[in-house]
Amino acid sequence: MLIDWFTVGAQALNFLILVWLMRRFLYKPILHAIDEREKRIAAELSNADAKKAEAEKEHDEFQNKNAEFDQQRAALMSKATDEAQAERQRLLDEARKAADALSAKRQETLRNDAHNLNQAISRRAQKEVFAIARKALTDLATTSLEERLGEVFTRRLREMDGKAKEGLGAALKTAADPAVVRSTFDVPAEQRAAIQNALNETFSAEIRVRFETAPDLISGIELTTNGQKVAWSIADYLASLEKGVDELLKEKDKPEAKAEPKPESKPVVRAEAKPKQELEEPKPGAKSQ
């Protein structure tokens, strides 16, 4: 008999036990391990995906920030450049202004110096011119000239016009002291008599006269009485001329101070030229008051 039924039953039981054992020790643990591994791999993959997404997000964020930073930097740079440009321009302008002011001041100083010099030269020239004129006239003043002066003086007296004549006449008549006739040199007796006559005739009265010498008159003659005076002298001419020249110089100073500085030669020429012109037209020195 090939089949032993006890063995068949025992083997069936053995097989069932083996099935249980294999399930317990082989299939379950192995399948469990495989499942766990797969879960773990899936978890790691999803984790990696999440990390990748996060990294990409951070990367994007970083790039955005970088771009923003670049923009800000560029803006700051351009702003700083503009400011520096403006500051440079301002400093340049200031320096130019300061330079201009300095140069203007210097020019002003130069102009003032030139002006002062001009004035000094003018005054000096004026003084010299008058001194020379005074000296020349003083040197020329001789007795014969005095005689001529006396003649001129008498003619003047005779030619006096109405009002001045009346005023002087009244003064001569009412004066307590005798009228004083002053001259540079002593008036000779003939001339004294002529003057006395001219006075008497002119005012139709006996005029008392006293004769004096005054060297500062520079060949001239004058009659003074009770505050009234009739005179003719070159000194008067010169004084009147000097006054006119002074006034002219003062007038010239005013516009010159405002005007641009001019070459130095011109004012000198003018200063010389003008007094000459003035000298050509002396005013009448006779004054009656």
Binding site: L21, M22, F25, H32, E36, I41
Partner: peptide
Amino acid sequence: NATIAFTWALMLVLAGGSRLITRKLSIGL
């Protein structure tokens, strides 16, 4: 008999071997 005895031996080898190997299973890579 020999059949049962060798079957037991095989059972021992299979179950014991499985037990030995699966005792320290790794779930890592």
